[in-house]
Design a protein around this nucleic acid. Structure first.
Lengths: 326, 326
DNA sequence: CTGAAAGCGCTTACAG
DNA sequence: CTGAAAGCGCTTACAG
C-alpha cells in the first residue's frame, strides 16, 4: 500500500559530501551561489545514493499552496458507463484547472477513506457507491467536501439519475409495443437497479399489466442471450434490460433466432444507458447523459467547496427514451 | 492553478478554543483521550474557521510513507482510444496498489511538468505525446521515472504500437480485396499517423500499387462520410482509415449509398483500433490492444522504478488484422 | 484528560 | 561561496 522512501536525508548527503546542509539544499534548488566544484561533488553523492528530497518537508518549509486536486473513488467493479462519467469529470475539472486523483485501493476501503481524508484534497467525488458512516465522519472532521455521483445519499450532496423514471419510461414504451413483458437484470444488487425495477414494475402495474418473467444474469457473458432465447420461446415479446450491454446480448439472441428461422414474431427490446454501440445497432434505450453527469459533478464539487453551502444538494438528472429500431 | 489554504493553523484553533495545540491535534486524530466536552468545543472552532490541517506538516511529522501514486499525462485532445489505455493502466496499477493522479492542466505544459517533477511521484506515464527537453531534465534531477505510452521516444522508456506494421497489414489486405485504394486520415499530424501512413504506402508501393487518393478530415463530424461518397463515386473501392471512428463515417456513407441505390460495386473498408462498436458493425480493422498497452505500461513503470534499470526499454506491441464483413 | 516540548526534513535569510 | 540556525505546522511521547 505504501512505499518507504530510502531513508536518506539532506543531512546524510551533507555529511557524505563534506558540506553543510544549506549547500546541499542550494544544489537541489537550482545551484545558484554554489561553486561548480562543490556542486559537482554534491551532485555525485546525490546520484550515488539516489537521494529524493522529502516532499513534505519541502512543501512545509516553502509554504507552497497545494495544487488543487479532486479525489475520485470508483466501485470495485467498473461498468463502461462509469468511464463515460469519468470523461465528463475530466472535462469539467479541466476547465476549472483541477487534477484528478483516482484511488485504486480495492482491498481495504476503510483505510482508503482514511487516506483520502487526510490528503487535504479540494474535494472527493464518489461514483456509484455508498460509503460508511466512519468515512463520512473522517471527511467531516477534516473539512473535506464530498459528492456522490450516480448514487443518492439522502443526507449528503448527491447528483444522480432519476432511475425510477427511467424504469417508468421503459414500461410505458413496452406496454404500447408488446403483449408479454419481461425484465432481465444484473445479478448484482444496486441502488440503480432497485429504482429502475421499482419504476418499471410500478408503471406496469398501474397500466394493469403483469410482469411475465424476470431473470438476473451477469452483465457480460452469454447468459443474457441464452435467457432471452428461452423467454422468447416461452412467448415473451417485450424485454427491458438493466443496461445496454445486457440488451446487446438480447440483440444477439434475436439475430441468432432470425438466422435459424425460429423467430416467429416481432420482439421489442429496451436497454438502459445509450452506450456508443447502441446508436449503430438501432437499440431503443433509456439514455443516461453520462458525460453530463460527470461534467456537472465536477462543477458541483468545486461549487460546494467554494461556497461552503449549508444545505444539502440533491440534483436529479432525467433520463430520456431514445426510440430506435427495437 | 493553485489554491491557498486559509492560513489558519492548529495554533489558532488552540488559542481560539482555549486549549493547547496537543489537544487540538488529538481531536483531529480520532479524539481519544479527550473529554467529550473539550472535543465539542474544539470541533466547533474547527468548523467555524473551516480549519484544514496542513498536510505537509502532518506527513512530515508522522514520517508517513508516501502512498504510491503514478502521474498520468494525456494529450490535449483525447481520442476514445486513450480511455481504453486508461482502463488498462487503472487495472494494472490496481493490482499493484498504486493510485493514479491524472494531470489536467492544459494551459501551461511546462509549469505542469515542473509540478509533476517535485510531486515525489512513484513514476509518470505520458500517453501519446512527446515532452520537452526541459521536462525530461526536471524529471531526471528529481529522480522521477517516466514512461511513454503509445508514443516512441528513442532515448526514453517507451511502450508503443507497431503502427508501421499496422499500416502494412491494411495495405496487404486491401491489395487483395480492392482494385483502387485510398487513405482517409486525421487532419491532425501525429507520430501514430505518420507511421501508419508510411507502412501503408510503402507496402502498396512494394506490391506495385499506386495510392489513388488521400484525404485528411476531422475524426468526428460528417466530412469523412462526405469524402468517402465522393471517392466511391470517383471509382475507389478500397479505403484505409486512420481510426475506427473515421471508418464509421465510411460505413455510414456506404449505407446511405446502398439505400439510395447509388452503390454499384463492393467497397472494402479497413479501420484502425477495434473500438467496441466495430465488432457489432462488422468492420474489418487493425486491432490495437489498448487495454493491454495500458496494463503493460502500469507494470513497466513500477518495474522501472523498482529495478532502477540502466538500459532504455523500447517495447513494441504488434497490432492484429481483424477481418469482418468489410 | 491536558499542556509544553521535541523534532520530522527541509529552505532561506543571516553572518561570515 | 558556505555554515549554523530558525522555523514551517503538525504529532506524540512525557509529565502532570
Amino acid at each position: 500500500l505504501k512505499t518507504p522512501d530510502n531513508g536518506i536525508t539532506i543531512k546524510d548527503i551533507a555529511r557524505l559530501s563534506g558540506v553543510g546542509i544549506g549547500t546541499v539544499s542550494r544544489v537541489l534548488n537550482g545551484g545558484v551561489h554554489v561553486r561548480d566544484e562543490t556542486r559537482e561533488k554534491v551532485l555525485k553523492v546525490i546520484r550515488k545514493y539516489n537521494f529524493i528530497p522529502n516532499k513534505a518537508a519541502r512543501t512545509l518549509k516553502r509554504g507552497d499552496y497545494s495544487v488543487s486536486t479532486i479525489g475520485i473513488v470508483f466501485p470495485a467493479v467498473i461498468h463502461p458507463f462509469y468511464y463515460e462519467i469519468l470523461k465528463g469529470i475530466y472535462d469539467g475539472l479541466g476547465e476549472l484547472n483541477y487534477n484528478l486523483l483516482i484511488y485504486n485501493i480495492g482491498q481495504d476501503r476503510d483505510l482508503m477513506y482514511e487516506h483520502i481524508a487526510d490528503e487535504g484534497l479540494a474535494g472527493v467525488i464518489i461514483v456509484a457507491t455508498p460509503i460508511t458512516a466512519k468515512a463520512k465522519e473522517l471527511f467531516n472532521v477534516n473539512n473535506t467536501s464530498y459528492l456522490f455521483v450516480d448514487y443518492k445519499d439522502d443526507e449528503q450532496h448527491s447528483i444522480f439519475m432519476d432511475n425510477r423514471n427511467g424504469g417508468v419510461m421503459a414500461a410505458s414504451y413496452l406496454a404500447q409495443k408488446a403483449k408479454t413483458i419481461a425484465y432481465i437484470g444484473d445479478n448484482f444488487t444496486s441502488q440503480q437497479q432497485d429504482e429502475r425495477y421499482e419504476g418499471f414494475t410500478s408503471e406496469l402495474k398501474r397500466l394493469g399489466i403483469d410482469l411475465a418473467a424476470e431473470r438476473f444474469t451477469p452483465v457480460y457473458g452469454s447468459e443474457t442471450a441464452e435467457e432471452t432465447i428461452k423467454l422468447v420461446e416461452a412467448g415473451i415479446d417485450g424485454f427491458f434490460y438493466f443496461c445496454d450491454h445486457q440488451a446487446y446480448g438480447g440483440l444477439q439472441a434475436l439475430t441468432e433466432m432470425k438466422n435459424n428461422g425460429s423467430l416467429k414474431e416481432q420482439v421489442k427490446l429496451v436497454g438502459f444507458d445509450d452506450m456508443e454501440p447502441s446508436q449503430y445497432l438501432g437499440l431503443t434505450t433509456i439514455r443516461q447523459p453520462a458525460h453530463k453527469l460527470g461534467y456537472e459533478a465536477a462543477r458541483l464539487i468545486i461549487d460546494i467547496r467554494e461556497k461552503h453551502r449549508s444545505h444539502v444538494i440533491q440534483q436529479a438528472i432525467m433520463p430520456e427514451l431514445i426510440i430506435r429500431d427495437t
